[in-house]
Each structure stands twice: as C-alpha cells, then as structure tokens.
Design a protein around this nucleic acid. Structure first.
Length: 324
DNA sequence: AAGGTGGACAACCGCTGCGTG
DNA sequence: ACACGCAGCGGTTGTCCACCT
C-alpha cells in the first residue's frame, strides 16, 4: 500500500515534523477537530499525508499525552498486560492514560524486552492454547464499570468467602497499590482495578468480579480446556507470566518453603506472599528491592483454592518465569 | 577531536477490519 | 456478495544524540 490513498495525487512531505507544521496541525485540530483525516492536511495547509497528520497528532501533539519516563507502576502494568494480550500495543495503551501505543511499543522493545529476555532460553512458541482465555481475561481487565468501587475495596480484609483465589488459568498479580498511587502514576484505574479484582470461584468454574455493590459474573472456560490445570502441567509450575512460551521450559520452580503460615483452609499469610513478591520486585525493579518491606506489589501465583481439605505446603509451590 | 556504536524515539509502511454504497 | 474508502494497528525503518574508543 505504501502511501495512503489521500497522498497519491499530490506531493507530500515526509520525515520529521517542523514546529511550524506542528503549530498548523494543532491550530487546525483544536479549532475544527480532525473530522476526516484525509481532509486535514489540505484544510490545515500542510503538505502531509492525512495518515501522517493523524499519527503526529495521536502520538505527539495530543494535549493529554504524558511525557517523560515510565513509572515503575506503569512498567509493571505494561508487563502484566503484555502477558495477557501480547503485542497489542493499542490495547495496552488504553489502560495507561496519556501513553501511546507507539510509546509503549518503543519502550517495550528498547527496555523491558531486554530485561525479560534470557538468552539461554529464547521463547519458541506462541501460547495459542491460552489465547482464548487471555482475550477473555483482557475483557475483564478493561471493561470494569466503576472506578470508585475499586477505590473503596479493601482487598486484604475480605471475609473468607470472598478471599482472593488466583486463577489456575492465569498468573494474576494483584497490585495492592492505593488508588492514590494509581492516580498519581496516571495509570488507567479502570484497567488496573481489573487486575486487582479477578476472583476465581473454583467451585462453579466462573469468574466473579466481586464488589460490595456490583457482582459481575463471567463464564470461564471449562476447566478441561485450561492448559494450566494439573491435568496438563506440573502443579509446581505456572505458565510464563510474560512472554510467549508455555510449559516448563522457562520455569524456575521456587518453593515457598518459608510459607509456614498456612491456615487450615490453605490461606497463606500476607507476609509469606510478600516475600515472594519481593523477589519479583527485585527482578523487575532492582531499585525497589531496597523498599521491599513497604512494597505494595503482590504476586499471587499457584495458590490453590481451599476446596480440598488436605491442603499442604506442597500445594503452595510457586514459580517465576526464569527470564524475568 | 573524530569516527563508531548503540539506545531512544519519531515516523513510515503495509495489513486488517469496518462501514457504506 | 462485492468493491471501495477509511481509520486503526503493529512491525519496521530512519534519525538524532549520547557515549565510547
């Protein structure tokens, strides 16, 4: 296709935008709106392709663009979202207000990817088996209706019936950062909250987004289709949190031997979970390792729902992707 | 000081999907 | 059903700049 339909008839300028061009585009769009992008360059007096104008506006000139480096919270969110939706940068961008898909893509390619790569075990396959579920989960992530509910939710003090049981399908990480933190870091709270509120009702196989006021129930995949159940994989491993590889190849089993504070129904103490979290934080953000004790980032992994009465520490084995 | 190198970022290219006639 | 116009998306390339030798 090359240049767009609107650029075929006339000569268009390519390359970097000059300040004068930027000014023209800003003035035009703020006055008239973009309407049909094809007509923008002509009406704004620009020798550019409409497509180029659109890109320039969306990626650079939009007033709500957030400039500057990514915060650690944004980075974590990107990593988690990428683990769910893959290279769908536009979708990820929708969950980080003020960030563009291009910016996130560049950031990923230039920085996060390198952090996550492990040269000795390059990713080899695409997790097609979990695409369906990942898509399903993404929809949970970005369609939650009420931000305030999330703000008011106290995830750490839920009654037993509402205890957070992480998914056997998806390696959820629950970020218990306060709403203020999220807002301060300009993270789209609607997106963030969905990562926080995924509650698996293991008894009837449905996902429940449990709220004090709202009760959203989403039908989950049949357990037989899950690639992460014990039928399909070693219970001691979780699928890769990030990256395309499924299975045990990139897994480094980490036994949470220090987790002795498991009650009769199989719940793990927050201290224990945080100790695992500290390890992840140290891997993702080394500088944060210094503040582990106050970290608000919790990694919930293969903790089994207390449906079985013979819960033991063997069921609480944890794993992290080795290339984190 | 000059050239080489790599990272960060901006922009382009080509494909896809949707709406419309 | 099909073609076309169009917006949006993701991969790739180009450019600038800081750093290193």
């Amino acid at each position: 296709m090359g240049h767009h339909y609107c650029c075929k008839q006339r000569k268009v300028k390519k390359g970097l935008w000059s300040p004068e061009e930027d000014e023209k585009l800003i003035r035009y769009i703020t006055t008239y709106g973009h309407g049909c992008w094809r007509k923008v360059p002509e009406q704004a007096g620009l020798q550019r392709c409409g497509k180029s104008c659109r890109l320039r506006w969306l990626n650079y000139l939009r007033p709500d663009i957030k400039r500057g480096g990514f915060t650690p919270e944004e980075e974590k969110l990107i990593i988690r979202l990428h683990g769910v939706v893959g290279n769908r940068w536009a979708r990820i961008a929708k969950c980080l207000s003020g960030r563009t898909d291009n910016e996130i893509k560049n950031y990923w390619n230039s920085w996060i990817k390198k952090k996550l790569e492990k040269p000795s075990s390059p990713p080899t396959t695409t997790p097609s088996a979990i695409d369906h579920h990942q898509q399903h989960n993404y929809q949970m992530v970005c369609n939650f209706p009420n931000h305030q509910d999330f703000v008011n939710q106290n995830f750490m003090t839920k009654p037993r019936d509402q205890t957070l049981y992480p998914s056997p399908f998806l390696p959820f990480m629950f970020d218990a950062a306060s709403a203020d933190d999220i807002q301060a870091n300009n993270i789209n709270a609607q997106a963030a909250e969905h990562f926080l509120i995924g509650v698996l009702n293991s008894r009837n196989g449905t996902w429940i987004l449990d709220q004090q006021q709202h009760h959203h129930q989403v039908q989950a995949l049949p357990s037989s289709t899950s690639p992460f159940t014990n039928n399909n994989m070693d219970a001691h491993f979780l699928p890769a949190l990030v990256g395309p590889t499924i299975g045990n190849n990139n897994m480094v089993p980490i036994e949470v031997e220090s987790c002795n504070n498991i009650d009769e129904e199989g719940e793990i103490s927050m201290e224990c979970l945080q100790s695992s979290t500290q390890e992840l934080n140290a891997l993702v953000h080394p500088r944060q390792a210094q503040h582990c004790s106050s970290s608000s980032f919790h990694f919930w992994d293969s903790v089994e729902a207390p449906s079985s009465s013979n819960m033991s520490s063997a069921n609480i084995l944890s794993s992290f992707p080795s290339y984190l």
